[in-house]
Nucleic acid binder design. Sequence first.
DNA 1: GCTCTATTTATGCAAGCGTATAAATACTCC
DNA 2: GGAGTATTTATACGCTTGCATAAATAGAGC
Lengths: 218, 218
Amino acid sequence: MNAEIATRKSFRREGEDKRREDLIAATLACVAERGLAGATVREIAQRADVTAGLIRYYFPTKDELIGAAYRAVMQRMTVQASDALKSANDDPRARLYAFVTANLGQPIMDPHNLSLWAGFIALVHADPAMAAAHRDGYLGFRDELEILIRDALRSAGAPAEPRHTRRHAIAINAIIDGLWLEGCLAGDIFSDGELAETGITSIEAVLGISLKAEGGAT
Amino acid sequence: MNAEIATRKSFRREGEDKRREDLIAATLACVAERGLAGATVREIAQRADVTAGLIRYYFPTKDELIGAAYRAVMQRMTVQASDALKSANDDPRARLYAFVTANLGQPIMDPHNLSLWAGFIALVHADPAMAAAHRDGYLGFRDELEILIRDALRSAGAPAEPRHTRRHAIAINAIIDGLWLEGCLAGDIFSDGELAETGITSIEAVLGISLKAEGGAT
DNA sequence: GCTCTATTTATGCAAGCGTATAAATACTCC
DNA sequence: GGAGTATTTATACGCTTGCATAAATAGAGC
């Protein structure tokens, strides 16, 4: 040991998966706090308690990290919505009901999620890879929704041919997205559960069926 | 005249309004082409055929220019939607119909508009001034919509008390926003007019009335 | 046509950016 | 416990960014 004052940062080696997750989490935290512009390599590294150079070891370029973060957000929201389905998997109409209310409540309907989402959407236009990632996510969501709708319609004895369910999926996807947007942007001007309730009522009107399970389960 | 090679850029003095408009237009062009990140002071200046320093003469800070551009876009979209109303101002239901289809067609439903919008929305979270600008625009839009809804309901002999129209406005705003989003993001996977048609059908279902004028005008 | 000033150009600066690369170090395996 | 390697740190480079400031000039008013 000599007279050097500055000591080198001590560190632990982490598994590859853990590090990637940490870096993505740090990225999301940065974006949530100061927007996409605030997600600089240095800031992300600092938040992950790591030096900036390490990021490049796991992500060849910053854009790849950003893309990975976007996919992580979308997947997280998808998983959260799917979790809601597991809790109420008996009646098809109850399932659709649960899916809608989950998407229009905490933790999915959150300003941070919107910030992240909007930031990425703004990139979609310029970055083809991001655009592809987005389209996949969107179509995946709509497909899942379309199945829920089809089952709910059938359960209510209503016609559920593809040409109907496709249109319904488009419309109901719009209702969910639109209300989600409103809630994220100005959640404080709505009473608790108002948006979810509005969503359910509107969707019932569009489908022409009730989403309250008649059997009375769950 | 001496041996200097580099000549100073010649220029014309423009009126304040003209310059501001040009700079905003250049900003929008930059954002449209390469996203918000592509809208650098130098790039904007070049597109406006002006040197970078001049921007600061009209906009104290770049953020102010961005904010002005945001307001310009929103206003442009609002005006375009209002223009559609002027063409069909007889029957209240026809007016609502026109308003909806205008918002779900060209030139409002355009990827560029979404890019701009998303970029700004991503900023809203971090910038209170931008947030205020956005909320004003949103509430303005919804208020206009609520009036159209109220008149349409009355015209159809349906109840139109505030507590109903408010809910309807929230829901229908969501439908319009959501479909607008879908169309901007992936307009190519929808047939022409499909989204507008879907919107009308859904809104009719939600309101429980037809939007085709019975009298048969326009 | 001269003067004066608002407008515009030109230049530079300090900060922050993403990326590259070499050195250091924690852990694995024998 | 020693050697080897994958992981991490440290440092620096080249670029771009927004912003500041001084010099130049177009056009209005007399």
